[in-house]
Write a protein that binds this DNA or RNA. Structure first.
Lengths: 230, 230
DNA sequence: TGTACATCAGTGAACGCGCGTTCACTGATGTAC
DNA sequence: TGTACATCAGTGAACGCGCGTTCACTGATGTAC
């Protein structure tokens, strides 16, 4: 039959997905440190050793979840990114997509941007997925630069060599001072999101959406983006 | 004897400190999730049940460590804060003290600013210690404001009500737009520190000290602080 | 189309481990008279 | 100063728990001829 090759392969894909879904559910309920292979298997009605047909160890399951989380966040941000709006507006939209995704998936967010899981070091396979949001922000700045809608931030003498090195690595077509501002804004965006998510804003910030929109607008200005039509 | 009341009490203080020190050592070695009462007791040559004379549960030990960490960070930042320098310079110095402390105590930093420990919620007793760095930054802005050395950031219409509420809560003597900028800068500072500490800057930022100094200088400007003599 | 063999998903038992917490106890230190 | 009693730090055994991983196995699905 033409499905000769398919049935087992499809089953494998489905079970793999079911394992990751259940693992994500447990992640959302209790956090990464408490994620347990035995509990996942139990919930799926399997015996714990059966999971080893799909993931050679707990760490490999964790790695798969991390890559999925980066990709899910990246897709979310990319989907929010409408090429028609002005760079400034797109910047705000992408930042809001990051925040929205984080609020919807707090434990997945903690998994990728929170404190590292002890005893676990992410393999290089996570790098491309992890870079997606950063690349998106660089792309927005690039669009503004090409449309001559980018005000260069003030350059800093002592940062010059590092700025040039970073620009050569990340975006050779952008002015170095824009690249350093981008990287700083990128980190600061996650400061804002993390503080809200991890409770540091409790009893401090109430209208968090407005506060966030305003703060990332300031970040955009720091990069050289200005409000206004494309 | 005059030490009648002292011997037992002093022993208690010393053992309590020894437990916390050992716990901190394990925190530094493996992170909060792996902190175990039994391992602490083992290392101290005690039996695990003996710890219950000092801390009623593992969570109480964690709480003590969290408060100590906030206080240690706060003291560090306060010590770095020399009232003689200009507000702008003091801002930079305090930010650098935060970063320095974080690099020296990565797991303690993760304990207080990383993802929450699953199943643990910090009691209110941690609040005053947690506020110390924030109060320091507010104080710097206040000094600048009183010395007429503070440029007000541009106000934002839609943020106005929230800004006034926050100002009333945190610093009624400062312009509301300064207070929101302060809170945003505070969160962003921890974004910069967290990204460096948790490895997101690997292969991206190399000269991290210069990069950080420049980035927090920009944060200061966002609050309205300007370089220059007091 | 039918048969012989190879692949592989899932089973169930077991290994060895560490954990937080409770409890009745011993013996030293501190207190009251 | 001396004695009787109360306090409290630390012991050791036990309870009940969950974990990751290995291994020999069964039986169904897929492949080659």
């Amino acid at each position: 039959m033409s499905t000769a090759h398919g049935a087992r392969a499809r089953a494998r894909i489905e079970v793999t997905a079911a394992i990751k879904d259940e693992a994500r559910r447990q992640l959302a309920a209790q956090g990464a440190a408490r994620l347990s292979l035995r509990a996942v298997a139990r919930e799926l009605g399997m015996v714990s050793s059966a999971l080893y047909r799909y993931f050679p160890s707990r760490d490999d399951l964790l790695t798969a979840l991390i890559i999925d989380a980066y990709d899910s966040l990246g897709e979310n941000a990319e989907a929010a990114h409408e090429a028609t709006a002005s760079p400034f507006e797109r910047w705000i939209t992408v930042c809001e997509a990051v925040r929205g995704w984080a609020l919807d998936h707090p434990h997945e967010y903690a998994l990728i941007y929170g404190s590292p899981v002890p005893g676990y070091t992410a393999p290089d396979a996570t790098v491309p997925a992890a870079a997606r949001v950063g690349l998106l922000l660089i792309g927005i700045a690039r669009d503004a630069h090409q449309g001559a809608a980018l005000d260069r931030p003030a350059p800093a003498d002592d940062l010059r060599p590092e700025a040039e090195r970073m620009a050569a690595d990340l975006a050779p077509d952008l002015p170095p001072e824009v690249v350093t501002a981008l990287v700083a804004a990128w980190a600061q965006l996650y400061g804002l999101v993390g503080f809200e998510l991890f409770g540091q804003f409790n009893r401090v910030v109430e209208d968090r959406e407005t506060f966030f929109r305003h703060a990332v607008g300031q970040l955009a200005r720091g990069v050289g983006l200005v409000p206004g039509p494309r």
